[in-house]
Design a protein around this nucleic acid. Structure first.
Lengths: 234, 234
DNA sequence: CATCATACATGACAAAAATCATAAATTAAA
DNA sequence: TTTAATTTATGATTTTTGTCATGTATGATG
């Protein structure tokens, strides 16, 4: 069944996410332009923004929300490749690489996401070496992270990768007001797909970390009690 | 002891590698400029071009040669992240990301490599959105490959990864005149570090592939007898 | 509230791949 | 060419992690 699309009027000038995005230092005129060529929409938890293999229609700018970007591996097993938060953009790799999407994106929580169509976006970048350089900078950062993840996935034991996964969640989504609880409800299986392991192993290792007093599992949430110990395992 | 540096006069205009590089469609004036700001040097087999963690002084353009780009993982174990061949560039990620090198580069065979210093290179890119877009395109392709490698490393069995490693070698370095022999002498340990496994396992699986008639090991070289079977395992 | 589906916990077991150990072969150096 | 160093081969063993099976908790839905 067709999802009801919830259109929202983009307000880039005052968008708090823009300030921390690659569009942070545009001049008012450029911001006006972006506002004109972009649309904005609410995605409910579980909704798909785009699918691996599809042709990209444009790029997505996350105003607020939590989105997983993942690939399909062997036997359809999901590998989560990026964890997206406010101010991040998605789809730029496919657009700049003149390629189909290499990943799918699914909202892990209700998310407000702006969209800029391919052509106007490309026109903008073609005119501004500064913007192109910013995107190259972003891609460079992402490439560095991906390369390091190859090495870690290949060489570190699952125990370390789970610890790293928890730290990544903290880095991307922060902690709740109490200063210890990871600000995302993550399923065992999702954590497993971040850390490249199985649901069962993730379960076991979370309990082991709890035994050792490193984390605490409270309901569906995870509290980080001893970040140093997590870091020492990664 | 200090290596003797072998300076070579760059001849970008007629460089066969440039034609297949990101500098392929520069106009004669731009080529002249590149020639002026670049130097060219021979690296002997085993020599290091740059080291992980160091500050980049510029980018490298490979005129001819075979270079491995690798990271140091757990207990110093090498993970080979890229296999570089004629026309490829290196160091752009660190420059564009305003970062240190995330990998080291070592010549696997004698290689002729040009060098463009950071500042003149950056000046050039700042002036040309087209060039910046090309680099973004290149980074996009590299990011795609890296992301896929994460998933494969995480999910595929070693057997598949060795097969993929061999195909990667063929893709990057081609075959000898006989049409079957991979055009690179690769040590067991290096193949292992491409496929994210151990030397022993690489040895065993190569022999298994030979038993099954998929490859043939002749001296230090590897012949691909049945590429389809290799592909079916990847 | 009952029932149905989904997510989670946990033990037993199996498989894959790493590690360790040793020897052989090949290559480089004296 | 002899010796030393490096690389490779291969068996035995252990470790890690995945798989399978089953039961429980949790939460949604009629």
């Amino acid at each position: 069944m067709q999802e009801l699309e919830k259109e929202i009027q983009p307000k880039c000038l005052t968008c708090s996410a823009r300030a921390i995005s690659i569009f942070n230092d545009l001049n008012p005129e450029e911001i006006k332009n972006i506002e004109e060529i972009s649309s904005c929409q609410l995605y409910k938890k579980g909704e798909t923004l785009f699918n691996e293999g599809a042709y990209p229609r444009g790029i997505f700018c996350v105003q607020s929300g939590k989105i997983k970007v993942s690939q399909t591996g062997l036997d359809g097993k999901e590998q989560i490749v990026h964890l997206i938060h406010d101010g991040n953009i998605m789809g730029h790799r496919a657009i700049l690489g003149e390629d189909t999407y290499s990943c799918s994106a699914v909202a892990m929580e209700d998310s407000t996401v702006c969209f800029i169509s391919k052509t106007p976006f490309y026109n903008m970048v073609e005119k501004s070496a500064k913007l192109a350089l910013k995107i190259a900078h972003l891609l460079s950062d992402e490439l560095k992270e991906a390369e390091r993840k190859i090495t870690d996935t290949a060489q570190r034991p699952v125990r370390d990768r789970i610890a790293q996964g928890l730290l990544t969640l903290k880095r991307n989504y922060g902690l709740e007001a109490d200063g210890v609880t990871i600000n995302l409800i993550v399923k065992r299986e999702e954590l497993a797909n971040i850390a490249s392991t199985t649901r069962e192993t993730a379960t076991r290792l979370l309990y082991e970390l709890q035994e050792r007093g490193v984390i605490e599992l409270v309901g569906k949430k995870i509290k980080i009690l001893d970040e140093q110990k997590l870091k020492s395992r990664s």
